Simulated scan of single mutants.
Amino acid sequence: MVELNYHRETIDVYSFGVMVLEMLYRRKNLDRFQPEEDMHLLDLFKRKVEEERLLDIVDKYNDDMQTHRAEVVEMMRVAVWCLQSDFSKRPSMSVLVKVLEGSADVQSNLDYNFTTPMAPRPIIVVGHQGDAIGATTPLFASALSGPR
Score class of each variant (00 low, 15 high):
V106D: 05
V125Q: 10
M1L: 09
P122H: 07
V73L: 11
R32T: 12
R27I: 01
G17D: 14
S142H: 11
E3M: 10
R26T: 09
V95Q: 12
L24A: 12
T136M: 04
S94F: 04
A141I: 12
R121H: 15
D64V: 02
R32Y: 09
R53M: 08
L139K: 14
S142Y: 11
D31G: 02
Y61T: 14
R47Q: 10
M118T: 08
G127S: 10
K48F: 06
H128F: 15
F33V: 07
K60Y: 02
I133V: 01
A119K: 05
P122Y: 03
H40V: 08
A119G: 04
V20A: 01
T116K: 13
Q34Y: 03
A104I: 01
G134L: 15
F16W: 03
Q66W: 07
E36T: 13
E52W: 13
I124M: 05
D12C: 12
I57R: 07
P147R: 10
G17I: 04
C82Q: 08
D105I: 08
S94L: 00
A70E: 14
L54C: 03
D56L: 01
I133G: 04
P120W: 12
N113W: 09
P117F: 01
T115G: 00
S88V: 04
L41A: 03
E74C: 01
L30P: 04
L144C: 02
Q129K: 15
K89A: 11
L83V: 01
G130S: 12
A104Q: 07
K60V: 05
R32Q: 13
T10C: 03
I11Y: 14
Y6F: 11
G127L: 12
R47M: 06
D43W: 07
L30W: 06
F45N: 05
V73T: 07
V18C: 06
G102N: 08
H7K: 12
H40T: 00
D63T: 08
P138Q: 06
H7M: 04
E74Y: 10
I11A: 07
R27L: 01
L41G: 02
K98V: 01
Y112I: 10
N113V: 05
H68A: 03
E52R: 15
E74R: 09
T116D: 08
S145V: 00
D64K: 11
V20N: 09
F87A: 03
S142L: 09
G17A: 09
V2M: 14
E101F: 02
D31I: 00
A104D: 15
G127E: 09
F87W: 15
M1E: 11
G17V: 00
R90P: 06
I11L: 02
W81A: 00
P91D: 08
E52K: 15
P91N: 00
V80Q: 01
F45Q: 03
A143P: 06
H40W: 05
L83E: 00
E52A: 14
L100V: 04
M23F: 08
D111N: 14
E101V: 00
E3Y: 14
K60T: 13
Y112H: 10
M23C: 07
V106G: 05
F87Y: 15
E37D: 13
S142F: 13
L4G: 07
F33C: 03
Y14W: 11
L100E: 09
M23N: 10
K46N: 11
E51R: 12
H40A: 02
V13S: 02
D38F: 02
N29F: 05
M1F: 07
K48Y: 08
S15R: 09
Y25I: 02
V95I: 06
V20K: 01
M19R: 13
M75L: 10
K46Q: 10
R8S: 08
I133N: 03
